[in-house]
């Protein structure tokens, strides 16, 4: 929806614009990809964007696994949601960068960790291509149509706050990513009929029981913290955790964070209140 709102904003500012998501199976909190194209002339190419002028990264943790600058054009700009300053980003190459703590802003203004509207404000500031008024029009058009005006208003406020808070700088190079990160066998190599047992590939496990290749911990905004002393080992958190992130120990449970999406169910069901949720701030990037 943010990509759509950006297209509306660009259109408001007099550009020709289109936007579309990568039609994946979006789940709340899961990494998604969306594209916006705008320019002075009528847009005809309807494909995904492979060589963007601008990249907007809504979740900083993606930088750990995805080369977000792959394809970025020379002189292009990356906008990242992070508490870090723009000069302290370490990416695959040097690039103009802008950062803003959109998560805090979103939580403050919309009471949710949905950072997309705040990042629109950041993009307007960083790129200088569209006005904050255009962003406002985009949000009202796209979000006001589907949600209530009150919610749209709050999102506009978040975008304005992010616009003000966005800082510009230059990201450093030095981060190395593996060349290919996906198992893409040829038509001849694919298991016939896609009937697939557990297979170990150079890109990790696929097939039966392979979901563990996908570490969903990066979706998390808040993380559960266990107070060992209070745990009575009632195992309700272990029973309910939809992501099997609680492990039974000899005396008390342990929380493993690789797959924890931070839903907070464990804290909610904990009878002795031994688990509480804490806002998670990305640790310093290990270059």
């Amino acid at each position: 929806m943010a990509a759509q709102a950006l297209a509306v904003a660009a259109s408001h500012d007099g550009y020709s614009a289109i936007a579309f998501p990568f039609f994946g199976a979006e789940r709340r909190g899961a990494p998604v990809l969306a594209f916006t194209r705008f320019g002075q002339e009528r847009l005809r190419v309807r494909t995904q964007v492979y060589e963007p002028h601008y990249v907007v990264v809504l979740d900083e943790s993606l930088i750990d696994t995805v080369d977000v600058l792959a394809g970025l054009r020379p002189g292009g700009l990356v906008v990242v949601n992070t508490t870090r300053s723009p000069d302290r980003l370490v990416l695959s190459k040097k690039a103009k960068s802008a950062t803003v703590d959109a998560t805090s802003i979103a939580l403050e203004y919309t009471k949710q960790a949905a950072v997309n509207t705040a990042m629109l404000g950041a993009f307007a500031k960083a790129s200088g291509l569209i006005t904050i008024e255009g962003v406002e029009a985009g949000i009202m058009e796209v979000f006001g149509r589907r949600l209530s005006k009150e919610i749209a208003d709050r999102n506009v406020a978040a975008a304005r706050a992010a616009y003000e808070a966005t800082r510009l700088g230059e990201a450093d190079s030095g981060r190395v990513y593996p060349k290919a990160s996906k198992w893409l066998p040829t038509a001849q190599e694919l298991p016939p009929g896609l009937a697939t047992p557990t297979l170990e590939t150079p890109f990790g496990r696929v097939g039966v029981g392979s979901s563990t290749s996908n570490r969903t911990g990066g979706w998390r905004v808040e993380k559960p913290i266990l107070d060992d002393a209070k745990c009575t080992n009632c195992l309700l958190c272990w029973f309910y955790c939809p992501d099997s992130s609680i492990v039974r120990g000899p005396k008390i449970v342990e929380i493993h964070y690789d797959y924890c999406k931070g839903c907070g169910v464990c804290a909610a069901v904990c009878v002795p209140k031994a688990i509480h949720m804490e806002r998670e701030v990305e640790e310093e990037v290990r270059a």
Partner: peptide, 9 residues
């Protein structure tokens, strides 16, 4: 001999 058959793709 577990197999995934008919996955979404």
């Amino acid at each position: 001999r577990p197999l995934v058959v008919g996955a979404a793709a």
